[in-house]
Design a protein around this nucleic acid. Sequence first.
DNA 1: CATAGATGCTAATACGTATTAGCACGGCGG
DNA 2: CCGCCGTGCTAATACGTATTAGCATCTATG
Lengths: 348, 348
Amino acid sequence: MTAPPRRVTQRDIARMAGVSQATVSLVLNNRTDAEVRIAPETRDRVLRVIAETGYAADPVARRLASRFNRIIGVFTYEPAFPSGSRDFFHPFLLGIEEYAERVGCDLLLFTSAPVVDGRRRIFHQDNRLRLADGCILLGREIPGAELHRLNGDGYPYVAVGRRDDAGGPVPYVGADYAAAVARLVEAALRHGHRRLTYVGMGMTAESSQDRRAGFATAAATAESARQVSAAPQAADTTLDDLLADGSTVAFVEDFATAVALEAAARRRGLTVPGDLSIVTLGDPTVPVPTDIVFTGFRIPREEMGRQSVEVLTGVIDGSAGGLQQRLLPCELVEGSTLGTPDPAVDRR
Amino acid sequence: MTAPPRRVTQRDIARMAGVSQATVSLVLNNRTDAEVRIAPETRDRVLRVIAETGYAADPVARRLASRFNRIIGVFTYEPAFPSGSRDFFHPFLLGIEEYAERVGCDLLLFTSAPVVDGRRRIFHQDNRLRLADGCILLGREIPGAELHRLNGDGYPYVAVGRRDDAGGPVPYVGADYAAAVARLVEAALRHGHRRLTYVGMGMTAESSQDRRAGFATAAATAESARQVSAAPQAADTTLDDLLADGSTVAFVEDFATAVALEAAARRRGLTVPGDLSIVTLGDPTVPVPTDIVFTGFRIPREEMGRQSVEVLTGVIDGSAGGLQQRLLPCELVEGSTLGTPDPAVDRR
DNA sequence: CATAGATGCTAATACGTATTAGCACGGCGG
DNA sequence: CCGCCGTGCTAATACGTATTAGCATCTATG
């Protein structure tokens, strides 16, 4: 219970097999270069001793010597397993775990990072990033300064979600929100909608910018295409605004807001999509009870997780040429909330 | 992009501050023993250089030299983030993460462990356990042989859930199923139930054994107390069996089976708890839709996660004296499925 | 002025692995 | 018999930190 019993080392194996520690290392790593030659009998002898002792190389020493760990860091800007954002992070982690298992890497969650001003910080006194070969960054918003510093340090990382605010190029695996929103806008136009409103949350996050850009581009030919901001609590006000504007379809960034909007409409005796079409622009990030299947799209979170590991391993071993930035397509969800506008409403 | 840029080391700091590497290490670790003395000015100078360079000690080298890492391993016998057992592991991980954050440890998920015969194995060729200071073991069932080997290696670990099959003592943080089941049995007896049936799943897992033991002990004074096994699919057969036996209350180990049993009873026009009381002995591990609140208990999963980290850190630094085994109390859930037996049914 | 003790620091080494230069040995051609 | 080459291995070193013995230097004391 006091000092842990010293583990078996290559030196022990070497002594037992009557060779040098270097030979053990060479055999272990199956080195068969032209430069390095080991007689088959010697090799077998060493392997036999290894098998007998159940020796396993110390990963720490291995890492110190060779600089690679097969550890992938995962940095979440919020706790990874909270009840609140549970549905947000979980699919990413699922994909990350799956791919990490496939490539034989372990996952290091940086839970030790201290929380300052309600969010974790990568860089702090006892920065432990270097424990891993590279790192996956998860979070709704990631401070540009930290990305900048990662770039400066030459530390391999990948952000999940598009990022552009690092004062330099950022490797990422994101979802192609612009294209998905554009396709939904086009669908609405085909349905005959002429006055469209984008109901957003904020302007800062890249994911919001991309959605807004997709909306603006695709809706350019519409009679009216405007953007407003709203929260779930203000659903009634938002609804007033939509009706006053004569909008027949709302593209709602936040899922909970869409649910609230539909409820508000129903309370007033309006039908969806008869009187108002509602399109959602992302999966729920917090659990929202509703029986309605909203028209919108699905963010390929699991696949984003998988590909972020793939990209990261490429960045780490240098096999990935150039900057790695991927945008994955979102699958559209048919749903029941996008329809043909009622002419009575459309004509204001 | 090829070789990682060499990072700042203590040697660099030492050169800049005009001291030796040893001094840097001593300052960093805040060593103020009687044996070791550093002049305040020197200390400040070193600290200033450290702050300027943003130096952070390489945890790998630190670990190699001192054996401690502040990394807690998490080994899950099934993937940690599957859709299926999602509701099973998640609360544990939540508690683990919370406590790890509190004590400043990072979490290493051993995703690299290869899967053999449908489950992961700790021990294999390139065992990476030593990357962490110690390890938390999660899984419905954990092979005794692996626990045995961990014991033999003197590797610090804690199992989540009681374990006894290691051919030696196993440190664990479990739930006190025996006590919880006993209290439910006593409640049933107070309600007037005389013929009780335990509907179990299997006999192997310790968690099943504990529940059965608690049942057997507490039901010793009942007119009849028997144990049967059943699956959710066989709910009708099970119900037949209960009625034939004249049992007025069923203690059902598996949540899904309890749901199926209640549904079967309702289909036959029986009421719960009027004609039959049903008590559940654990939270759902897979999502089962039901509106009924079953009488039973709640497994303190989150707290088990927290305390497993607490116990492990104690085992690692040796501050925990002796064997660490904790059983946490389960909170009873009042529910609506335990009532007074109908005399007509009770008297068979 | 010699000596003892306190103070402030450094040199040396350990941790366990990977890598590389090069040694020892044997066979072969000249 | 000498030089050369191919084979099979080892000695030495690096990786970055923690630890410990002990070396200077200075102050106080007899």
